[in-house]
Design a protein around this nucleic acid. Structure first.
Lengths: 346, 346
DNA sequence: TACATTTGCTTAAACGATTAAGCAAATATA
DNA sequence: TATATTTGCTTAATCGTTTAAGCAAATGTA
């Protein structure tokens, strides 16, 4: 049992050279001869040498670790973003550390502390729903390491941001719903304090005006957008004196809750009520009827976020500033708003 | 702008004491006076001191980091396991690093390398579907750090394991299906080489015998258990000369695929065909009809895995050995196998 | 041959914290 | 008062790696 790990010193001893030479040989320093390099690499393999990350990170001040903070990993969107981010970062020699805030502000603060403590070289994050106070994000900026936000971002921080055009997405949805004859369109939106949800709400209102549709206050509801809350808000809408003929929900989970209520109360979808979700979660194409939704191009968001990080870390004297990267979203029309085609699973 | 981070040296300079005294004061060493301790802590706060994890980990040989490997984080089961693991570990002063294998053997190997490279104090893992060769897991053991497996484990590694009783779960399911009158029960199972799926298959076969039901070879199919493969395998079963009257699928995702096919082909569930899934993913209670499934107590699995890790790390001269912690699962009966009650959403 | 340059290494300091060992001063014990 | 013990620190080594500086030997140049 060789419990003791092999270090560059061990390799140096075997070859009777200095540890410094070994270190340089491993990093292909031009001032080390090919013969020595080969010998070092051979012995390293033989002794099963694994470089000690802590030591090199301590000395060089670079950990090659990128911290990632997401509200939850159990949504397809975030899981896909992470996967694509990881692909790009791994190729560039970085490894990622995933943490989840569970939509809790307190947890998000703890995550940031953990990541800074682990000496990550940068942080890529999407904010929790609860987050309003941004001082803990300022902490990242003040450390001088890159901070990249995606999806749930905040302009006030003046850092890079990658996301989709939420305002425009709402327009796309209203356009589609009016085209199929909807006259009273409701919106179960997120909390206005979150920028993306605010943008969706603004887009919703402006699009209604554009199409000369009534903007009834009762038809615009803020929600935590969980499945359960989607159910409650749908019940609210159904109990109105003059209920809507279409509902645009700002999250697929809440849309699913809404659909459950509609099914339970035998409201025919899409005949009596059209439904549109947001996010293109896999289940939207699995439930009955399938749910019309918005695809956010999580692959691109992940890749671009990672590439932005690399760009920032490689730029020598870079100062954080607001730089937005807004991608186009895509409306995926399914049966919950399909009034002209025969209804079958997509 | 104070870019340079404060170190114990800075604190020492302010108070005109040695860095060693500062370090000890921070750790409440009994040989440091209360007065000095207070002064150190005050200055630390004033200078916004953050201990350098790399340095302390390098010196002490402990990183207080635990690596977690899961197939994917976007399932409710794993996401919940992680959440509960984290709760216990944080309290004990550990932070976790989550990595996902995406069910790929190669990715799993890379993850292990990353985690070992990051000098984690231990690893808690659930194996990828693809994994057959276990040599990379041996690498963890040979480092002398604790390895804890859950859900997808492997006895051959002789390490701690936390999971549910898969064999018994199959019995529960068959018991339920026979009780409601099913006579020809099929099983879309996972690959036999994965222990948990093999146990479910063994349980399935033994339970059939126990209830004097036929064990038709065509009614037992191995599958990758993705949604798509669930569809394909269901189509296979429906095209048999003598199709089954119930299907037990070893994963909720594949069960959902099966349900789609049944709905599309207008096979009435549960009247003509009963369906049972596995895992209690949220969507099983959301689709129509709702799917009967098995709850795995992810909260407990996460907690126990974390507690086992702590137990191992605190035991001085502990040698890895097989120690199983098998939890009881729970059958959640929903409409897809509800033949006696009126059919409504649960 | 005399000097400059290049090659291929070595030396030694550093990164920031921990910790065994040591030492003077204060306090306790006889 | 003389000695032992405790208190409260300091010194210096260490963890494993990186890297600036330095220095012989080999090679190139005039």
């Amino acid at each position: 049992m060789n419990k003791k790990k092999t270090t560059i010193k061990d390799i140096a001893n075997v070859l009777d050279i200095s540890p410094a030479a070994v270190s340089k040989a491993m990093h292909d320093d031009p001032r080390i001869s090919a013969k020595t390099k080969n010998a070092v690499k051979r012995v390293a393999r033989e002794l099963n040498y694994q470089p000690n990350h802590l030591a090199s990170a301590l000395r060089s001040g670079k950990s090659n670790l990128v911290g990632v903070i997401v509200p939850r990993t159990n949504s397809n969107f975030f899981s896909s973003v992470i996967e694509n981010m990881e692909g790009v970062l791994n190729k560039a020699g970085y490894n990622i550390i995933i943490t989840q805030s569970n939509e809790s502000f307190e947890k998000e603060c703890k995550n940031i502390d953990t990541l800074l403590f682990t000496q990550v070289d940068g942080i890529i994050a999407s904010m929790a729903n609860e987050t309003v106070d941004l001082s803990h994000y300022e902490k990242i900026k003040s450390k001088g390491i890159p901070l990249i936000l995606f999806d749930r971002g905040e302009n006030d921080l003046n850092v890079d941001y990658i996301g989709i055009d939420d305002y425009e997405s709402s327009h796309m949805i209203i356009e589609h719903l009016t085209a199929i004859g909807c006259k009273r369109i409701a919106h179960i939106g997120g909390f206005r304090r979150t920028r993306i949800f605010n943008n969706r709400i603004r887009g919703f209102i402006d699009a209604l005006h554009k199409h000369n549709l009534p903007h009834d206050k009762h038809l615009l509801i803020e929600s935590s957008l969980t499945l359960e809350d989607g159910r409650l808000k749908m019940q609210e809408l159904l109990s109105l004196d003059n209920p809507p003929d279409a509902v645009y929900v700002a999250s697929d989970y809440a849309a699913l809750g809404a659909l459950q209520v509609l099914n339970e109360q035998h409201v025919k979808v899409p005949e009596e009520m059209c439904l549109v979700g947001f996010g293109n979660e896999p289940f939207t194409s699995l439930v009955s009827p399938t749910i019309t939704t918005v695809k956010q191009h999580s692959e691109q968001i992940g890749k671009i976020a990672a590439e932005t990080f690399i760009k920032r870390i490689e730029a020598k004297n870079w100062k954080p500033k607001l730089e937005k990267n807004i991608l186009k979203s895509e409306l995926i029309i399914r049966n919950s708003s399909n009034r002209h085609l025969s209804i079958k699973s997509s």
